[in-house]
Simulated scan of single mutants.
Amino acid sequence: MPADRDALRGALKRTASALKHDGVPFALAGGYALWAHGAPESENDVDFVVAEGDVEKAAAVLDAAGFEVVRPPEDWLFKACTDGVVVDLLHRVVGEPVTADLLARSDEMDLLGVRLPVLQATDLLSSKLRAMTEHYCDVGALLPHVRAVREQVDWTRLRSETAGNDFAVAFLFLADRLGITSA
C-alpha cells in the first residue's frame, strides 16, 4: 500500500532540514531523487545517503529532531521513522561505501522548498541496475524513470559501471532497442 504523498514529502523535508542544519553531509537518493530529476514520484519511502563515518552523527541528529531511529539487521543502513513514514539512510549502496566523492558530485536542487543535494541521475541508475538480480529484476517499473531522466545520464559511464551485471546489461540492451539511450 503506497504511503501518503504528503507524509512522504514532509518526511523528506524534515530529514533534509535536520541533516543540513547540523552539518551532516548527505544526499537524497532513491525514487525521490529520480523524481527530483523529473521521473514519476515515489510511492514507498524516502532514501538518503550518508558516509559511513557520519552514520552515528546522522542518527543522533534525527533522534534529537524527534524521529524514531531503528537499526535493522541489515548493516548498510538505518531507518528513521516519522509520521508513519520510513526514511532509509544508507551508508553503503550495492555493497559499496558511500564516499565523499559521491556526495560531492550530487546536484544542489530546490525541492519542496528545501535546497538539498540530490544524487546525479547516472549514480541513481547505476545503483538500481547493479542491484538487479534473479530475485529482483523489475524492468517494467524502471523504464518510466529511465525515460524521464535519459538526457541527464552519462551513458558511457553507466555502461562501464554496470558491465559486470548481466541483468543491467540486458536492461541497457532493451533501453537501446526502445530508443531510450544514446547508444
Results as ranks from 00 to 15, higher is better:
Arg130Val: 06
Glu74Asn: 10
Leu129Lys: 10
Leu89Tyr: 00
His145Phe: 03
Glu74Trp: 04
His91Pro: 03
Leu143Tyr: 00
Gly53Leu: 09
Asp47Gly: 11
Leu102Trp: 01
Thr133Pro: 13
Ala104Pro: 11
Arg92Asp: 08
Thr122Ala: 06
Ser126Leu: 11
Leu129Ala: 08
Glu96Ala: 14
Asn165Phe: 09
Gly84Glu: 02
Tyr136Asn: 15
Asp107Ser: 13
Asp54Gly: 07
Ala163Trp: 12
Thr156His: 13
Glu134Ser: 13
Ala59Asn: 06
Ala104Glu: 15
Val55Ser: 03
Leu77Thr: 11
Arg157Gln: 14
Gln152Val: 12
Leu111Thr: 03
Phe78Gly: 04
Gly164Gln: 06
Val93Trp: 02
Val118His: 02
Asp154Trp: 07
Asn44Lys: 01
Arg105Lys: 02
Gln120Ile: 00
Val69Gly: 01
Thr133Asp: 13
Arg115Tyr: 00
Met132Asn: 12
Met132Gly: 13
Glu161Leu: 14
Glu151Tyr: 13
Gly53Asp: 13
Val149Phe: 13
Val49Gln: 08
Tyr136Lys: 15
Tyr136Trp: 15
Pro144Phe: 06
Arg92Val: 07
Leu90Glu: 05
Arg157Asn: 00
Ala131His: 03
Gly84Arg: 00
Met109Pro: 00
Ala100Val: 06
Gly140Leu: 04
Ala163Tyr: 09
Asp83Gln: 00
